[in-house]
Write a protein that binds this DNA or RNA. Structure first.
Lengths: 216, 216
DNA sequence: CTCCAATTGTAGCGGTCGATACGACAATGG
DNA sequence: CCATTGTCGTATCGACCGCTACAATTGGAG
């Protein structure tokens, strides 16, 4: 067991090849989008022939979907476990937002490629788009859970609105950074966003039951 | 003037053909992105041969750029002139946000295609991406001007932060609607966004000079 | 009617696309 | 040592890509 994996040196090391292919694909797909990702370009970048790519993946669609899946896991690892943040609820929310921002700076491929796929509207939807929307849905549910936990008196509909707004802010700020580069301090903007959303949620919770759900 | 335009009935009406080509292109490009927009597909959709497309436009890049430009003008027309909204500054800001939201629902092609191009990072940047970022810069400057006009005591750096945040919210909410469809009430979300940003701006203006720029 | 310019139609160029067939070869189990 | 299995290299396939050449057709100007 000590040398079970090390014996495969030169060839037939499919695991590493699979990673090399995914590495090359995530780079090219993040640059050029779905259609712009050609098998030949991936092959040139990872140094493996096209036949190897088609041995590891069923077709191009499957390759892109696998890229989305792996980049999501990479991003999840970068976010880290929520941990037991200390302090006031506001401080904890701000800390969580900062962590998400840092993870998006460290591993932006997932959201960049995912948003590119999400904005497309093909007649036959690529599998990668479906995968992205699924894992994105998981993240949305987690945010919803945070709202329900921190402010249990909030109406379900209000929680949905707040979640939509929180996710939209994250997406939009990420896009801003992709466009303007390092000029955008993503961590600071995420923390600001968290503060504004949290304060709005607190006000909505206080107003709840008085007949109106609007803020202001 | 009764038959000035009607004389050109069957052929050689290049103006309408150009519009037909642009109509077909904006539809396909909004579905499939830059690389996915093939001349053959545009030709099939608009009913004109490829040679006509290349008579009206230099190449594919020029065609996409022209689409961006025209869809921007269409969107600007949908937004309408700012007009002299009445009421409090908050009410005016909320009204403006609602108008922008309605225009994005009526003419989403501009922002959808623009964001798709903006997220791409090709070695050689498409002309359409440059055009989008330019006209987007115009819109950003207008928002900056609104902040400076409504709250002149705000620091320039704070205005920049608020503008970034406001635009990010708009982008993100638009993306949410593109993903979730009519389940997202874009007008309501934009109005909520406007309220939160405006209130944050007012608080920042009040805190300005007291040493800290943070909110909360 | 003749001529010109604008526009469309037909045909095809070289190149790249996604995908496959098939053999070479390394490692493993027997 | 041999057969099997997993993986890579070579060589292609037909389809489609962006793009162009060039003739045909049209409407308007003279």
């Amino acid at each position: 067991m000590a040398e079970a994996q090390a014996t495969r040196r030169k060839r037939a090391n499919g695991v590493e090849s699979r990673q090399r292919i995914l590495d090359a694909t995530v780079e090219i797909a993040g640059e050029r989008g779905y259609e712009g990702t050609s098998i030949a370009a991936v092959s040139a970048k990872c140094g493996l022939p096209a036949s190897s790519i088609y041995w590891h993946f069923k077709d191009k669609d499957d390759l892109i979907a696998a890229v989305i899946e792996r980049s999501f896991e990479t991003w999840l690892a970068a976010v880290g476990l929520p941990g037991e943040e200390s302090g006031t609820p506001l401080e904890r929310v701000v800390t969580m937002a900062g962590n998400v921002a840092r993870s998006l700076v460290a591993a932006p491929e997932f959201l960049r490629l995912g948003l590119m796929l999400a904005l497309e509207r093909r007649p036959t939807e690529p599998q990668g788009r479906t995968v992205f929307l699924q894992v994105r849905g998981i993240a949305v549910q987690k945010i919803t859970a945070v709202f329900g936990e921190l402010l249990p008196e909030l109406d379900e509909r209000v929680v949905h609105t707040l979640t939509t707004y929180a996710v939209a802010g994250a997406d939009g700020l990420f896009v801003q950074r992709e466009i303007n580069g390092d000029a955008v301090d993503l961590v600071a903007m995420f923390e600001l966003h968290a503060r504004l959303v949290y304060e709005a949620a607190v006000r909505m919770a206080a107003e709840d039951g008085s007949g109106r759900g609007a803020v202001g």
